[in-house]
C-alpha cells in the first residue's frame, strides 16, 4: 500500500513537471505595436519578440506585429540592412506575422513591393489603429515595446 501511494505521488509530481515544461505560460495571443522609426528601438522590439518566443514557444504563440506611422521604416531598413533583414526573416520563419497600415503606405507614398521588405497584399491592413483595436477585442494582449 505504501509503495502504491509513493508511486502515485511520484507520478503526480512527474506529471506536474511535464506540464510545467510543456509551456508554463500556455497559449498566448499577442500584438506588438511599432509606430516609431528609431533604429535602436526597432531592434529592441525585435529582440523582445524573439525572447517572447523563446519563453512561450512558437507553437503556443499567435504573435502579430502591427506597424504604422514611422514604424514602416523597419521594413524599409530590412531592404538594405542585412542585420535587420535576417531578424525579420528569422521571426517570420517562426510564424510571426508583420502587418502594415494601408494609410501609412498611402501617406508616405510607398511602393510596398519595392520600398518595403517582403510585403504582400495580405500583409496590408486597412488601418493600423483599427487592427490593434480589433485584435484586442479578439483577446490579443497589446504590447508597445
Amino acid at each position: 500500500m505504501k509503495k502504491l501511494i509513493a508511486i502515485a505521488i511520484m507520478a503526480a509530481l512527474g506529471f506536474g513537471v511535464t506540464v510545467a515544461n510543456a509551456g508554463s505560460y500556455g497559449k498566448q495571443k499577442v500584438v506588438y505595436h511599432i509606430n516609431y522609426k528609431k533604429e535602436k528601438r526597432q531592434f529592441g522590439a525585435l529582440r523582445n519578440i524573439q525572447n517572447h518566443i523563446n519563453a512561450v514557444g512558437k507553437e503556443n504563440l499567435d504573435l502579430r506585429v502591427v506597424m504604422h506611422g514611422g514604424g514602416y521604416t523597419l521594413l524599409k531598413r530590412a531592404n538594405t540592412d542585412p542585420n535587420m533583414q535576417s531578424k525579420v526573416v528569422s521571426l517570420k520563419k517562426q510564424g510571426i506575422k508583420f502587418n502594415i497600415c494601408a494609410n501609412t503606405i498611402r501617406g508616405k507614398k510607398l511602393n510596398y513591393k519595392n520600398d518595403l521588405y517582403d510585403v504582400e497584399q495580405a500583409d496590408i491592413v486597412p488601418s493600423g489603429v483599427a487592427e490593434l483595436a480589433h485584435l484586442q477585442a479578439k483577446g490579443f494582449t497589446y504590447i508597445k515595446p
Binding site: N35, Y36, H68, G69, G70, C101, N103, G107, P126, S127, G128, V129, A130, A133, H134, A137
Partner: peptide, 29 residues
C-alpha cells in the same frame, strides 16, 4: 468599437503622426 489613444509626448513629429492615425481610423470606421 471603443478605443482609447494615449498620448504622453509633446514630440512634434509623433504628435502629428498621432493625429494622422487618429483621423485615419475615424475616417475608416
Amino acid at each position: 468599437v471603443k478605443i482609447l489613444i494615449h498620448l504622453n509626448s509633446g514630440e512634434p513629429e509623433l504628435v502629428q503622426e498621432s493625429l494622422d492615425a487618429l483621423e485615419n481610423v475615424l475616417r475608416y470606421y
